[in-house]
Amino acid sequence: MGPLSFPAREDSKLEYSNPEIPEGINTSKTHPLKEFLWLTGGVMAAIFALVLILILFADVITSYIPFSVEQNITFSGVEASTEEGPLPEYLQSLADRIVRAEDLPEDMKITIHYLDDETVNAFATLGGHIFFFRGLLEKLPNENALAMLMAHEIAHIKHRHPIRSLGRGVIVGLALSVISTAAGDAIIESFLGKTGYLTILKYNRDMESQADETAIQALNSIYGHLGGADELFKILKEEAGRLEPPVFFSTHPLTENRLYEIKIHTEKHPAHDVTDITPLPQEFEKWVEEKEEEKTISL
């Protein structure tokens, strides 16, 4: 196809021309480096101010973080634990009774994990996960002591101690993850650590006392007395004396004081008789041992 042709026209007075347009109408005259400095300076100052405010009010803000956010934080360590079998089931059923006694909110789901390890310890962590080590369970003489231990850990969850003790790091991380997911996750991770952060959660003495207080009330409402509960602290005291005091124990209130607390409460709600103390299930000892045997065979 060849080019279109137009016939000539009669009147041709119109003249067209393109004027020289001055520079800087469609573009900005600001030097790019100046803009860069203004922008980065301003944005960084804003983030800094935000983080500062978050740090100052961390403790207040943490109590407003919904429990579901905690549940969404994934962490390592859960894989190593057992949730199936008679022992974890028994522990979970006991936990459910305590949850009712402590009157936890509906959405606070407690998950019990059993770790086949000699460590004499138990701890509560983010997302309502509570870990029990074989080392501590096999030392417990009766259900009341176990219930005291469990009630104490569940009370930690109830009072939101795990997230409150992580406090600032997590708050700042969660806030920054709104701006940049990568930066936020990196901060949370650096505070939590990639592995083994579960056990480094430290609760201060006020938190421990609060948990003890709630646990004592729960035990009272379940059993009607505190008989046998003091056994737990006697074991912990023995452990603390035998080993060099681990971090876990040093942040707890002095065991003497805790025993004294229980004594005072026991005087208020006395156990009628030693026979009132609920024994552990008959197979409990077997459960705790059986696991050990299975483990040695598998090794």
Partner: peptide, 9 residues
């Protein structure tokens, strides 16, 4: 535009 001469487009 108005053009007096014939042209191609």
């Amino acid at each position: 535009p108005m053009i007096s001469k014939a042209c191609d487009c």
